[in-house]
Amino acid sequence: MGGQEAGPICDEQHDFSLWEKRVDALMILCSSKGYFTVDGLRRALEDMGEDAFETMTYYERWIASINQNLIESGAYTIEELGAKMADVQARGETYGEASLG
């Protein structure tokens, strides 16, 4: 990315929402426990390609990468993830309703 053409720097700032903070915490905890490294996080982020930078938010890209790394490290299986996501989506229409924890 260094040296490429790009527009002005936008100084807008948003507070991180709870779900974003949770993504951040999962990264720190899983890497400190040896499930993957920040390098693995970066690798999966890069593999998403340039499009992901335009279509996904920062922590959306992060959770996608964290999930990719956790599946690769065997923390859980794709089947388990699929079943759990269906379960989560059936709980309610909002993040607050769907999130237990």
């Binding site: 993957f36 490294t37 390098d39 693995g40 970066r42 690798r43 790394n69 690769e72 490290s73």
Partner: peptide
Amino acid sequence: NPEQLAYG
């Protein structure tokens, strides 16, 4: 080497 760590 991060290029090895990145792939586990």
